[in-house]
Amino acid sequence: MNIFRLTGDLSHLAAIIILLLKIWKTRSCAGISGKSQLLFALVFTTRYLDLFTSFISLYNTSMKLIYVACSYATVYLIYMKFKATYDGNHDTFRVEFLVVPVGGLSFLVNHDFSPLEILWTFSIYLESVAILPQLFMISKTGEAETITTHYLFFLGLYRALYLINWIWRYYFEGFFDLIAVVAGVVQTILYCDFFYLYVTKVLKGKKLSLPA
C-alpha cells in the first residue's frame, strides 16, 4: 500500500459518497445516468466475487463491501425510490455496445481462463468505459450540475492516482498487471476532456455547460 493507492481508493470512495449524498439530499437523480450506475454495480459485483474465495486484508474486504453496498444503494435510489426524477429520455446510450464487446474481450485476453478470473477481467474492462453513458448524457443535455462534476472529478482522479500507484509498484515491488494498466490508461483518457472543463470552468465558479 502506497500513498497514491490509498488516496486513489479514498478518491473513489469520495466520488461514490458524493453521488449518493447528492441524490439523497436533493431527493432527485436528475442529470445522473442510471445506466452508468448499473454498469458500476455490475463492475463491483463481478470483480469482488473473490470476497468469497480469498482474504487479503480487513481494509480490502471492508472497502469492497462499502463499494458494492453504495453502488447498489445508488441504483436503488435512481430506479426505485427517486424514479420519478430519473431523466431516462436523456440516458439513451446503448450499453449493449459496451457490455458485449467487453464480454468478448475478457474471454480472449485474460490472465487465466477460469470463471472468476474472466469475471475479474470483464469488470476491469467494463469499468474503463462504464462512465460513457454519463458523459454521453452530459454531452446530450449540454450541461451538468456542479455537484455532478465533483463526482466525475473524484472518479477520474481515482484512476489517475492508480496510474501513479502502478508506476510506483512497478519500480518498488516489481508488480505489473498489463490488463489493469491498459484499461486504467483508457479509463483515465476518457476523463481528460472533462478534467479540462472542470479546471477551466467549475473551479472558477462557473457551471459546466457545453457550447451548443
Partner: peptide
C-alpha cells in the same frame, strides 16, 4: 509477478 487469483487492488 502476481497471482491472478489474488487481486489486492480495488
Amino acid at each position: 509477478s502476481m497471482d491472478p487469483a489474488k487481486h489486492d487492488e480495488l
